[in-house]
């Protein structure tokens, strides 16, 4: 039985890749989309490896490991509005910090 390991790896990687990219375009949460994008990019790097271009694979990881966090940051800034705005327990509802501000020069 001669298993074509390359083909098997290719198929596994492409399934991951297509699944990941579908998740990117359908994800409800922005940060999830970024996570799936990271997976997609790393698996595309894996395909580069199959095409014997290790250098490109490493550059792909290096560049996108730097670029994806920026996307992440953006996603965080846009999506985690909820915990930034929600009132923490024990907080005065009409706006904390009002009292000491009144008499400020």
């Amino acid at each position: 039985m001669a298993v074509d390991w390359q083909l098997a790896a290719f198929l596994i990687l492409s399934v991951l890749e297509i699944g990941g990219s579908i998740m990117v375009v359908t994800a409800k949460k922005l940060v999830h989309a970024v996570f799936w994008l990271a997976l997609t990019l790393v698996t595309i790097g894996g395909i580069y490896l199959l095409f014997l271009s290790e250098f490109l694979f490493l550059i792909q990881i290096l560049v996108y490991a730097g670029a994806v966090p920026v996307l992440f940051l953006f996603g965080i800034m846009l999506t985690r509005r909820k915990i930034m705005e929600e009132v923490t327990p024990g907080e005065v509802l009409e706006g904390p910090g009002e009292a000491p501000r009144e008499g400020l020069p």
């Binding site: 940060v31 996570f35 990271a38 990881i61 290096l62 490991a65 730097g66 994806v68 966090p69 992440f72 940051l73 965080i76």
Partner: peptide
């Protein structure tokens, strides 16, 4: 350089 991604997550 992959770890900061995990930290962000």
């Amino acid at each position: 350089s992959l770890a900061p991604l995990g930290i962000l997550i």
